[in-house]
Design a protein around this nucleic acid. Structure first.
Lengths: 366, 366
DNA sequence: CTGTTAGCGCGTTCAT
DNA sequence: ATGAACGCGCTAACAG
């Protein structure tokens, strides 16, 4: 180590001397037990701390209490857009509570996640937030689970985010309900024939959207085959390809639903390139906030998934569990349908106009 | 506090007893001073630690040494896509070095950033990584700077990431060089009339791209007005609007360059919607990895900005500075031109074909 | 209500 | 090459 660290930070002893009290009293005032101290001395201590610029040494406190004010956050892939919103929510809620967060990118690797957990454990974290699907399953997955249990057994709180987690404490959307929401919107517009584009590989949360969607369609007394299912790779190109394939295979539909926003936007692009007008010919809808709306030329109708609130909820749930029992073990965050310009009334004649499509496609290229 | 924390973690004392040595010896072996211990006893200690499942208490170590193995990372907005890549690089490099990172989202707020710095300081962080532009300028900005100096004065290392930072230790791209790279590519293809779309508000790094671009054009003996400058808001829509405006104002150009990938993609969309063929009529290029390539139907030509390496470099620079002097105080990461399908030879007749455009636009709508 | 005392787990002299 | 002793800054009994 090179630099010589001049000691400049104040300790409670210096504050104690300045205030004419003992270090315990200072500890009480500055460490959360302020109500045990006479208000007169309390003021004196706080004033002294203020003028000295006292700052608590978190390491010392952590050593003494066996707990830090740090929360670990495990993510599969930090590049995920939805995740970024969750992290903002976590950041805001944590900051307001004086908590710092350690971000751990696991790349879906259970072994790496387990190692990260151990490191967080070494740092006496108060809790961990587990975003996305579980690491369960394989050999490393079970060791991950063991590590979690070892930690929770010692009072560390683990909160899962999303519907694909088996954590006892979790915060998530109600994707099945969201599925119903979107279906009802389209049904109310008169649509009766749908194409639903899944993603492959899927996630439990996305499967639930599909289930909810089919639930709602069935609830109107429509046969199950009114919802044609397709799979796409999770990208704009995947969505576009699926949409084009739907056209080419002669499937009958007036509305396309993408399991994610990206898929929906891809479908939009694919259809538009074939000269189909949205929403006059076909309505399109999806889930999740669409920053790609302006790419499409107009706003996509979506069920807005409040990922930010998911993050906030995770921290709040964690803190609640930390001091006592949380009010609920499973927090569900509500979502809201945002009607854009990609959905409209079902066309009067729901049959396909293949020739018109072909012509437009020719002009438009590709 | 509710949960009773059964003490289950091992201390060096238990390892010491199991190995039949003193705690000092264990500390030396497990704390980096292993070479001071006879290899025989060293083995014994390591074996004991292994079987006991010993894990060092980071809080205790931090208290004793006045330093943790934590690095703070300040970001303006965690949703930024480039940033996500940087964070992955930071995560990987840090993990391999046994370092944990604390992520702090500041929302461009100097006061919030300063508060975060103080919190990190309380945690005895080894260093901080400052991404993006400085928080300097306003009143809060100067307090931010003071806080940084206070910390660096105590041996905490601060590393800036990007060209818009004034940190002594920094890692960045050489955006001016990147600007020249792209210009040379287009010049080699025969282009002589360019439109350069800036973003508003701009950043120093982006300004440098523009400067480099103009440098290279001038270096070929072309007059400055061969590069027409436009500004756009930083979005696909902004890029599209700028491109359309260029068309409508009758500017003469065979190649469009966007200061960012998003802008370039937006220009692509705007031109394509007007029926312009890329790259037959107009070439388009930008900087940064384009995940929107598939949205455009083909790959954009870009200078790939290796943001991941920027993150890796930041951590490496930080640890170098931590134990001794870094080899360089300013690390420049190289970028590579990736030629996609959006650039091609300049059209033989560089004049505008306004009528053709109008016709295509009419057919294509919007 | 406040002060005294004793650790928390580890690094680090200083002896040996 | 190893061990004994002390301190890092703070919290948490226990007295008073």
């Amino acid at each position: 180590m090179a630099a010589v660290n001049k000691k400049t930070s104040r300790s409670i002893y210096e504050v104690a001397r300045a205030a004419g009290v003992s270090s315990s009293t200072v500890s009480r005032v500055l460490g959360g037990r302020a109500e045990l101290v006479a208000s007169a001395t309390r003021e004196r201590v706080m004033a002294a701390a203020q003028t000295l610029g006292y700052r608590p040494n978190r390491m010392a406190r952590g050593l003494a209490t066996g707990r830090s004010n740090i929360v670990g956050v495990l993510v599969h892939d930090i590049r995920n857009r939805q995740l970024a919103q969750v992290l903002r929510g976590i950041d805001q809620a944590a900051r307001q509570l004086g908590i710092l967060t350690m971000l751990c990118n696991t790349d879906y690797d259970a072994a790496r996640a387990t190692e990260y957990l151990a490191m967080l454990d070494d740092h006496q974290v108060a809790g961990v937030v587990l975003t996305g699907q579980d690491y369960a399953g394989k050999g490393d997955g079970s060791r991950f689970k063991e590590q979690i249990e070892r930690m929770t057994g010692r009072g560390i709180v683990a909160v899962g985010v999303g519907e694909s987690t088996s954590q006892a404490l979790r915060v998530s959307l109600h994707n099945r309900r969201l599925g119903r929401q979107l279906a009802d919107h389209l049904l109310d517009l008169g649509h009766r024939r749908f194409a639903f584009v899944r993603v492959e590989p899927s996630l439990r949360a996305l499967d639930n959207r599909e289930r909810g969607f089919r639930d709602a369609v069935a609830a109107r007394g429509l046969p199950a085959d009114r919802v044609v299912i397709r799979s796409a790779t999770r990208s704009l190109a995947g969505g576009a390809a699926a949409a084009v394939e739907l056209l080419d295979s002669g499937v009958d539909f007036t509305a396309v639903v993408g399991a994610t926003d990206e898929i929906a936007a891809g479908c939009h692009l694919g259809l538009t390139r074939r000269g189909i007008h949205v929403p006059q010919d076909v309505s399109i809808a999806g889930w999740g906030d669409s920053e790609m709306s302006d790419l499409l030329g107009h706003r996509l109708t979506t069920v807005e998934t409040p990922m930010f609130q998911l993050g906030v909820g995770a921290i709040h749930l964690l803190v609640q569990a930390l001091d006592g029992s949380p009010r609920r073990r499973h927090v569900v965050v509500d979502a809201e349908l945002v009607v854009g310009e990609s959905t409209g009334p079902a066309p009067a004649r729901p049959t396909k106009r293949r020739d018109g499509f072909r012509l437009a496609a020719q002009i438009n290229g590709r």
